[in-house]
Computed example of a mutant assay.
Amino acid sequence: MSNIKTRIVNVVSNNRPISKETSRVLKHKLEKNGFFVPEEFDQNADLIICIGGDGSFLRTLHENNFPDMPIIGINTGHLGFFQELSPYQLDEFIFRYEKGDYIIQELHPVEALVCTKTHCIEIIGINEIAIKGDKSRTIHLNISLDDSFLEKFSGDGVLVATPTGSTAYNYSLGGSIVDPRLNLLQITPIAPITTTAYRSFTSSIIVPENSTIKIFPEYTFENSILIITDGMEYKHYEIEEIHLKMSDLRPKILRLKDYDFWNKVKEKFL
C-alpha cells in the first residue's frame, strides 16, 4: 500500500437496519470531509470501515482476500470484540483519523495446507481453524509437532487458534487468553476423550510461531472431515494430512491510540 493517501475509504456493512443506517450516515460524513467512498470495494483505498459485528469483520477480510489496507470496525452487533467504534463515535473517529491519532496493529493468521491423494488447498484463519468429524462423530487424529509425534487424539476435534482468536471459540473451549503482542499458536482440544481406551490431552498446548502442526486423520465410518475457519464450515473428503502454521499474511487493524487489549477483555468478559 502506498504511503500517499488517496482519501478513498471502503465502507462495508451487514444487512441489519442499524448497520445500513450507520453506513448511510458515515458515507455522508466522510464525503463532507473530502473522502471518496466507492460503490464497489476498491483495492486502492486507504482504509476499510466495517459496520456490523465480529462475523461481519471476519467475512470482510475473507471475501476481499485479506487486503493490505487496514480495517476498523463499527459495532452494531453483540460482542464486538474486533470492533473499535460505536455508531455515536463517527465524528470523533473522522477527526482522529485525519489527525493520525491511531496505531496499526498487525494480525498473525493461521494457515492450513489440506492435502488429499490428488491435490492440496490452502485455508486461512484470522481467529482459528478447527478440524472436526462429520455428523458429530468422534474423530481420531494423529498429531505431530514439527517432526515429533504428540498424540493420537480422540474426541470431537481440535482447534488451532491465533492470539487474536484466543478470545473467540478457543476461549469457550477453555483455552487460554493470549496477549496479541505474542506470536504463537494454540492447539485446543474439542471434547477430548480420556479413558482406558483413548488418551488425549485435555488442556490447550501453546507452540512457537515457527512450529508446524501436522495432523493425519484416521477414518472409522466415512472419509469426510469438517474444517471450520473463522466460523465458516467446509466439508472435505479423503484428507490424508493437514499442516498448520502461522501465515506470512499480515492483515492490519486500525486502532485508536488509547486502545488497550486487556481493558477490552475486561469490558467484554468480566
Rank of each mutant, 00 (worst) to 15 (best):
V160W: 05
V160S: 02
A161I: 02
T162L: 03
P163C: 10
T164D: 12
T164G: 10
T164M: 14
G165R: 05
G165T: 06
G165W: 04
S166C: 00
T167H: 08
A168C: 11
A168T: 07
Y169E: 04
Y169D: 10
N170Q: 03
N170T: 02
N170H: 05
Y171P: 09
S172L: 01
S172G: 02
S172Q: 07
S172N: 08
L173I: 00
L173D: 02
L173R: 02
L173A: 02
G174D: 06
G174R: 07
G174F: 01
G175S: 12
S176N: 11
S176M: 04
I177G: 11
V178Q: 13
V178A: 13
D179M: 05
D179A: 05
D179S: 13
P180R: 04
P180A: 00
P180H: 02
L182V: 01
N183C: 10
N183G: 10
N183F: 11
L184I: 04
L185F: 03
L185W: 05
Q186E: 15
I187F: 03
I187T: 08
T188W: 07
P189D: 06
P189H: 06
I190Y: 12
P192S: 11
P192I: 08
P192Y: 14
I193L: 15
T194P: 09
T196G: 14
T196R: 14
T196C: 01
A197G: 11
A197V: 14
Y198S: 11
Y198R: 08
Y198V: 05
Y198G: 05
Y198H: 15
R199I: 12
R199P: 11
R199E: 12
S200F: 06
S200I: 03
F201Q: 09
T202S: 13
T202I: 10
S203P: 07
S204I: 00
S204K: 01
S204A: 02
S204L: 00
I205L: 02
I205T: 05
I205C: 00
I206T: 15
I206A: 03
I206F: 05
I206L: 10
V207Q: 02
V207P: 07
V207W: 03
V207I: 09
P208W: 04
P208V: 00
E209Q: 13
E209T: 08
N210T: 09
N210V: 01
N210F: 08
T212E: 15
T212V: 12
T212K: 13
I213Y: 03
I213L: 03
I213S: 01
K214F: 02
K214L: 08
K214A: 06
K214D: 10
I215Y: 09
F216L: 10
P217S: 06
P217V: 00
P217W: 01
E218Q: 09
E218T: 07
E218D: 12
Y219Q: 08
Y219S: 10
Y219C: 05
T220E: 14
F221R: 15
E222T: 13
N223E: 14
N223L: 01
N223F: 00
S224H: 13
S224A: 12
S224M: 08
S224Q: 15
S224L: 07
I225S: 05
L226N: 15
L226R: 10
L226F: 14
L226A: 01
L226P: 09
I227D: 12
I228D: 10
I228C: 04
T229R: 14
T229K: 15
T229D: 12
G231L: 00
G231V: 04
G231E: 07
G231T: 04
M232N: 11
M232S: 11
